[in-house]
Design a protein around this nucleic acid. Structure first.
Length: 576
RNA sequence: GCCGAUGUAGCUCAGCUGGCAGAGCAACUGAUUCGUAAUCAGUAGGUCGGGGGUUCAAAUCCCCCCAUCGGCUCCA
């Protein structure tokens, strides 16, 4: 953290204290929990008998302004732990006492201004008057200490900046995020829907969205074939027994749906694809000469997610993973991980993601397999990252039950991180399910399995893409690439001919021959973010040409069909 | 799942302390045949999220569900 960030942190921390003071003045019964700074702002958690709502925000803000205008100094006091406990007992702050009881230091510090005092390590601003620009954003529920077994408190989120301009910039950023929201754009651009009648978290891809998916899938399939993968299709359900054998029933049951009974046997809808790929692997004897064997599938899985966590395309209950399982020998593992890493970065780059955060997740509390194997798998991932000189951070205990993983979070053009790619090494499942290959010595060995997804799920990736591009998809992904707009009825026949020609070239074209003014048609196409428009009037008809306009308003003017075809094809090939 | 808010026409939203359900856009019909981001007029469109209750009377008040939104927890 650089110096500037530290200063901001102090600034926000002090603002959160001022907010706590304000809330305490308005609702004297409130009990204070914690109020730290965050990456953009701050929050404070309250245990308040009165339910706080959005309507309280302006009132609290007003009270904060009073405290700021009073410009009272923040005073630090050090006292013994027992004196501090006594102090917070006197003013009735049970949460502060709970925090104090866990502090091992003999002395602690408290900060105060006016008649307000709070347990705090500090440091703080010199006085309340130093706060120049802040805004409270929302109220929300939050568990005490983030544990869902604890009482739910009320949290107020706010932001604070050194001056009004910075605050305005941040508020503009929030507006930009809203403007790009994939749920809103999904409706406006008619890309997808999630219907109450079908069920929460289940996505319907509309024609325009389905086009984009198809383009992505085709790209994905081609590139996988080039990279030595074999593409599979597998069923959506399997016997419950299978999931018992794999360990999913022990370690993944809370994300799985209830089984269904078919002729006395129980079946289960799949939450993962790996057992099917393993089954194909095991369908015959495998030789060491065949390895590495790379099986890939756009596999649709269903996972139970608690209703409160569903969020547009980014968190759903049914989704298609761009999944693959690589079976290889121990001596091939580093090379395979490297290949996957390179492949992943290439695919992400194609969609305009060049910036990412990489995490290495280690063994979780619930796991299968020996410690030694975990160690070995974890090192394989670490070595690959280091080999490529990629910076990463360690996420302790965040691995999957069968092995450690590398997660790649891409950053979109607003700098927001999104979890997509995951690469998981698995020493455990092949052994558990008796997956083997015949070695040079004619004995059987367990292969290593690498599970990986590049985009993660097509649904989530699509949601991220919509926001990344703000709905303005590059030409190769655009649902409609070219809209042909007639000026009047006598241009329809010629326009229809043009449409046929472009369609036969494999371009996605539509014809707007409605009885509307040209301005209206341009507006419609622009709102749908169609990359290119052809305006067809008397002149074009007479010259056998088209008149081209781009969605950003740029006018390319009159040109021949051939010229336009060349422009479009080149842009499509470049995938920009 | 938990805390809070919201749910009214295809979409965006009005509808106050209970008293005949509204607007703009879209759709449809007609007129207009038009040169780079909205032509004009008319028509139609609603079990007010679902179920129960209070009341002479419920979009409005109460209860229970469902979904969405902001978070928490959890995750591709």
């Amino acid at each position: 953290m650089d110096n500037n960030e530290k200063v901001l942190e102090i600034y926000r921390h002090s603002t959160s204290h001022i907010m706590a003071h304000a809330v305490k003045e308005i609702y004297p019964d409130v009990k204070l929990a914690i109020g730290p700074p965050t990456s953009d702002g701050f929050y404070y958690d309250f245990d308040c008998p009165k339910t706080l709502t959005e309507d309280d925000i302006p009132v609290i803000e007003e009270k904060m302004r009073e405290i700021i205008n009073a410009d009272r100094p923040f005073v630090r006091k050090e006292l013994s732990k027992s004196d501090a406990i006594e102090l917070f007992r006197k003013i009735g702050e049970p949460y502060k006492i709970e925090l104090l009881e866990e502090i091992t230091d003999k002395t602690v510090s408290v900060y105060g201004e006016g008649n307000f005092v709070d347990l705090c390590r500090g440091p703080h601003l010199k006085s309340t008057g130093e706060v120049k620009a802040f805004k409270l954003l929302s109220v929300a529920g939050a568990y005490w200490r983030g544990d869902e077994h604890n009482k739910m408190l009320q949290r107020i989120y706010g932001v604070a900046f050194p001056d009004k301009d910075e605050l305005k910039k941040y508020l503009d950023f929030i507006e930009e995020v809203k403007r790009r929201d994939h749920r809103r754009l999904g409706k406006e651009l008619d890309l997808f829907s999630i219907s109450d009648d079908i069920g929460a978290g289940l996505v319907m891809w509309h024609p325009r969205g389905a086009v984009i998916r198809r383009v992505i899938e085709n790209f994905w399939t081609e590139e996988h074939q080039k990279s030595g993968y074999q593409i599979l299709y597998t069923p959506h359900i399997a016997k419950l027994d299978l999931w018992k054998k794999t360990g999913h029933m022990d370690f993944y049951a809370e994300n799985m749906y209830s089984p269904m009974e078919i002729e006395g046997l129980e079946y289960e809808i799949k939450p993962m694809n790996c057992p099917f790929h393993i089954s194909i692997y095991k369908s015959r004897l495998r030789s060491y000469r065949e390895l590495p064997l790379r099986f890939a599938e756009l596999g649709t899985v269903y996972r139970y997610e608690r209703s409160g966590v569903l969020h547009g395309l980014l968190r759903v209950r049914g989704f298609t993973q761009d999944d693959a399982h690589i079976f290889c020998r121990v001596d091939q593992i580093e090379e395979e991980v490297l290949r996957v890493l390179d492949f992943t970065l290439f695919v992400l780059k194609t969609f305009g993601f060049t910036d990412y955060d990489i995490y290495l997740s280690t063994r979780p509390e619930k796991y299968v397999g020996s410690l030694e194997k975990w160690e070995r798998a974890t090192n394989a991932l670490k070595d690959a990252l280091q080999n490529r000189g990629l910076n990463y951070s360690i996420d302790p205990g965040e691995g999957v039950f069968y092995g450690p993983k590398i997660d790649i979070k891409v950053k979109d053009c607003l700098g927001r991180p999104w979890q997509c790619s995951t690469i998981q090494v698995d020493f455990n499942i092949p052994e558990r399910l008796d997956v083997t290959y015949r070695g040079t010595d004619s004995k059987d060995y367990s292969p290593i399995m690498i599970h990986r997804a590049l985009m993660g799920s097509l649904e989530r990736f699509f949601g991220i893409l919509i926001e990344h591009y703000a709905g303005v998809f590059p030409l190769w992904l655009s649902p409609v690439q070219l809209s042909i707009l007639t000026i009047s009825e006598r241009h329809v026949e010629y326009s229809r001919k043009m449409t046929e020609i472009f369609l036969s070239e494999g371009l996605r074209v539509d014809l707007n021959a409605e009885n509307e003014k040209i301005g209206y048609k341009i507006r419609e196409a622009t709102l749908l973010k169609t990359p290119y428009m052809c305006i067809i009037g008397d002149k074009e008809m007479a010259n056998g040409t088209v008149n081209v306009r781009k969605r950003d308003g740029g006018n390319l003017g009159e040109m021949s069909l051939e010229q336009l075809k060349t422009i479009l094809k080149e842009e499509i090939t470049k995938r920009r």
